[in-house]
Design a protein around this nucleic acid. Sequence first.
DNA 1: AAGTGCCTCAACCGCGGACGA
DNA 2: GTCGTCCGCGGTTGAGGCACT
Length: 256
Amino acid sequence: MVRTPSYDKNGLKKGTWTREEDKKLMDYIATHGCSNWRQLPKHAGLSRCGKSCRLRWINYLRPNVRRGNFTQEEDKLILELHQSHGNRWSTIAKHLPGRTDNEIKNRWHSYLKSSSTNPKLHPIVANNLKTSKHKDDKTNEEVNINSLLDNATNDILESTPIVTPPLPSPSTISSLAPGINSGKSFGLEEGACSKQPIGERSGDFWTEPFLHDFEENVDCSTDDLLMPFHELGIQYPPSPIDEEKSFWFYGMHINK
DNA sequence: AAGTGCCTCAACCGCGGACGA
DNA sequence: GTCGTCCGCGGTTGAGGCACT
């Protein structure tokens, strides 16, 4: 499932990303953040366009990107959200921690789309169609969707294998990754690095549930989650919160 | 074992919105 | 108000994997 590498007329590389390119991109973002995608490849030493770098980061390299099979809860949520939002994949993705819009879009086209027209293919779909039968009234529909979102999101969050480290203090960050403390922090917002200082972040959608998971599911599969980083030879200093159990991204150390 | 077709998913393309000059 | 630039989004494609014949 890879595209043959090629070069466009401007000499920019297209196609599959190599491990070397991944490492360069991650190395650069770890140090400088990703405030300007257009300039990033030039400064990072990549022969790629900014859009390609952004896409690679968002869909593959970004921390907390959840890879692997979709759970029933996720499928259920996607179906409900698609009923209310249509093909607004980025909107839908905001309700699925760790999933990218691209992944959800692929999931829809490859599986759920056909299942929605033929519920026999997917029991979750059949149930959804049953429960949402009388959604003519818009108010009822909104209520149903909202309650379903609450339930489904809780299900996902309770079963998610993802852990996100507690947010470090700015001083910790500056000591571990020079440059990050100058407003170029790693955020967990959709698709990009937030410019909001890390210390000011608290209690948002991305951190709260994972903090809970971090406490409850310390033995989850961080190896899987960090696979791209391990493969690239990136190591993680222990979290100041719990050195034994956690992994650490915000102040990650990259071997050179 | 070889051929074929479908499935999956990473990546590209083009458009539109936001924003600043 | 217009233009240019940048970014994000949704649609589409390319190619490997895999099941089936």
